[in-house]
């Protein structure tokens, strides 16, 4: 036992909520790159889960990985966490550390898609166990556990066994276990999957607190509303390839495909050209909101139903892949 690991400093500032390892940075090109994924390929036999994918995550930002099931999001997460070694390409933290090395893994936390908890242990016992694996001891350990319990809003249930928790509470604890050691980079693999809407809201509150604390987050999801609400930038992935990456505004501007006006007309106004026939409706695609509003006003008195849909992630995804995200 003489070869004891030295105590690791508390990952959270004892004075407030700020983690001392990370500065709060809003998305901006000036923030340094924390994680670099370069031309990464991952093969499983003949199948390619990832196919020459490259992207960068800046310090302090929240990057969303948006794609349908089987797009390669989880594989990418596992590569970033160092659980898998890529078949080709490199993953680097701060430009030099590979996640396969223990020193780099110490700076990463992952909340797996499936709950990864010891259900016969209490919430606190789970957190203490995982924090110890990262070298936390003594006061630093206790402080880290307190912060993680607070983040997950589980302080009152700290001594309860996990199997007595609701699905949402387990999800929050799953998240807390990923951040208890104060990582620079937090990987969140569909952290709200399979929970009811109310619990999902609680989980999302925890995620927003995490973001407010300045953690760098990589967040995989196939829920557009989550990506829109939480992420500074969104990477659209399908068939293991990066199709587009940018802020929501950038993606919509580049790939949104315009504002869609759809109407079921009782008579056709004279000053409006014919739209595309979609069933018993007509649809017009216009480049900006002003033109869409003007058209809607003209159609208003002649339509039994009328809808204006601005471009969003759904249309971005459809434009990029030719199919709906939920297909």
């Amino acid at each position: 036992m003489s070869n004891r690991r030295p105590e690791v400093a508390a990952p959270w500032s004892s004075a407030g909520l700020l983690p001392n390892a990370t500065a709060i940075l809003r998305p901006g090109d000036t923030a340094p790159v924390l994680l670099q994924v370069r031309d990464v390929t991952q093969r499983y036999g003949a199948a390619r889960a990832l196919d020459g994918l490259s992207l960068a995550v800046r310090r302090g930002e929240t990057l969303g990985l948006l794609g349908p099931n089987g797009a390669g999001k989880t594989t990418l997460m596992h590569l970033m966490a160092g659980v898998l070694a890529p078949t080709g390409g490199t993953v680097l933290l701060d430009g030099r550390g590979s996640p396969s090395s223990p020193a780099t893994r110490r700076r990463i936390g992952i909340a797996p898609q499936d709950l990864a908890l010891y259900t016969e242990l209490t919430a606190e016992e789970n957190l203490r166990f995982f924090a110890r694996l990262y070298g936390l001891r003594g006061r630093a350990l206790s402080l880290a556990v307190e912060r993680a319990l607070a983040l997950a809003e589980l302080t009152a249930r700290r001594h309860h066994r996990v199997h007595t928790f609701s699905g949402g509470m387990q999800r929050r604890l799953n998240l807390a276990c990923a951040v208890v050691h104060g990582p620079d980079l937090v990987l969140l693999d569909e952290p709200t999957v399979g929970v009811d809407p109310q619990s999902r809201g609680h989980v999302f509150d925890s995620l927003e607190r995490l973001k407010a604390l300045g953690h760098t987050l990589v967040y995989s999801t196939h829920y557009m509303e989550e990506a829109e609400r939480l992420c500074d930038r969104i990477a659209v992935i399908d068939h293991g390839r990066l199709l587009a990456c940018g802020t929501l505004h950038e993606l919509v501007r580049r790939h949104g495909g315009g504002h869609r006006v759809r109407a079921r007309l009782t008579r056709h106004p004279d000053d409006v050209s014919s739209g595309t026939i979609v069933g018993d409706e007509q649809e017009w695609v216009l480049p900006d909101a002003a033109q869409a509003t003007e058209l809607a006003l003209k159609l208003g008195s002649s339509a039994s139903s009328l809808a204006v849909r601005p471009p969003d992630l759904e249309t971005v995804f459809f434009t990029l892949t030719g199919r709906s995200l939920r297909d």
Binding site: H78, A81, G82, V83, P102, A103, R105, R106, I108, I110, P112, D114, L115, A116, L117, Y118, T119, F130, L133, Y134, G135, C177
Partner: peptide, 14 residues
């Protein structure tokens, strides 16, 4: 089966 091996493998231990 409970998924905790992923956490163990992602921890800084061999």
């Amino acid at each position: 089966t409970r998924g905790t091996d992923l956490r163990l493998r992602s921890a800084p231990i061999s």
